[in-house]
């Protein structure tokens, strides 16, 4: 059974997994893993050509064109509003999309987003017609501010990028879901294993963005299948309605009409 479709900035999607294109052991492994993931959105980036390599991006471009996915360019490596704005504008021209995964880092040790710069850059980019997918911390007030600015999607971290530590603060993520019920929310970063993704989806998150967990698996293609199934299962569970936890046991086998010697009062 397949979980319901969803919409991201007006684009209807079937898969709830966004997947990155970096860190795979080879281009072929990347293509096979992305196909196995059934992702319809892939993240990409851009860089300056080196002086002696005048067509370095062509092979990669051909591969991602063949995948026929929606492209979500990122502003990875930006530590200021100015850098992020410049990269976003370049990405819009290069990839011919107004979607941008906005990353403005504040700390190089844990790649934590700079909340102040993120808000400033988001405001400017939305005014300039971008559809911003902010990579953000799980801070409620920050996310509320980004929502007020007009973001239709927010992407709080589960844990720092590439750590695979899973959801370090489920309480904060649960709070975001409860306090921003209409917002499209993806957990972006920190997912290490399929059960992390299930946990986020069961909390009511709309999707997952991941890269390293698949790319650095021993068998990326197989791991991509695992994540696709896990994310679908987590979403189905959320849609089905998860039973509340109880403190006391409650028998699952009916006790009515049991023999007298099995009745314990």
């Amino acid at each position: 059974m397949k979980a319901s479709n969803w919409t991201v900035y007006g684009q209807e999607l079937s898969s709830r997994l966004f997947i990155g294109t970096a860190l795979y052991p080879s281009p072929k492994v990347m293509v096979d893993a992305i196909r196995a993931s059934k992702a319809e959105v892939i993240t990409v980036s851009l860089r300056r050509q080196s002086a002696n390599q005048s067509n370095s991006g062509e092979q990669f471009w051909q591969m991602i064109e063949d995948l026929n996915c929606h492209l979500l360019p990122n502003t990875a490596g930006c530590y200021s509003v100015k850098e992020a704005l410049k990269t976003a504008h370049m990405a819009r021209e290069l990839f011919d999309t107004d979607w941008v995964k906005l990353e403005v880092m504040g700390d190089s040790y844990n790649l934590q987003p700079d909340p102040f710069a993120l808000v400033e850059a988001t405001k400017i980019l939305i005014e300039d017609g971008f559809k911003v997918f902010p990579y953000t911390t799980d801070d409620l007030v920050l996310c509320q501010k980004l929502a007020e600015l007009g973001c239709e999607v927010l992407m709080p971290w589960g844990a720092p990028i590439g750590t695979g530590q899973g959801l370090l603060n489920p309480y904060a993520l649960k709070t975001l879901r409860e306090r921003l019920p209409e917002m499209t929310l993806l957990v972006d970063a920190g997912i290490g294993k399929p059960s992390d993704a299930v946990q986020a989806m069961e909390l009511g998150f709309d999707g997952i963005l991941l890269n390293t967990a698949v790319a650095e698996a021993l068998e990326p293609e197989t791991m991509a299948y695992a994540f696709a199934d896990a994310i679908n299962a987590g979403r189905l569970a959320y849609e089905a309605g998860i039973m509340p936890k109880r403190d006391n046991a409650k028998p699952s086998t009916p006790t009515l009409d049991q023999p007298i010697w099995q009745q314990h009062g």
Binding site: Q49, S56, G57, W61, P73, L94
Partner: peptide, 10 residues
């Protein structure tokens, strides 16, 4: 003058 090309990204 800078020539910018696509690369992989996460």
């Amino acid at each position: 003058i800078e020539i910018m090309s696509p690369i992989s990204g996460g």
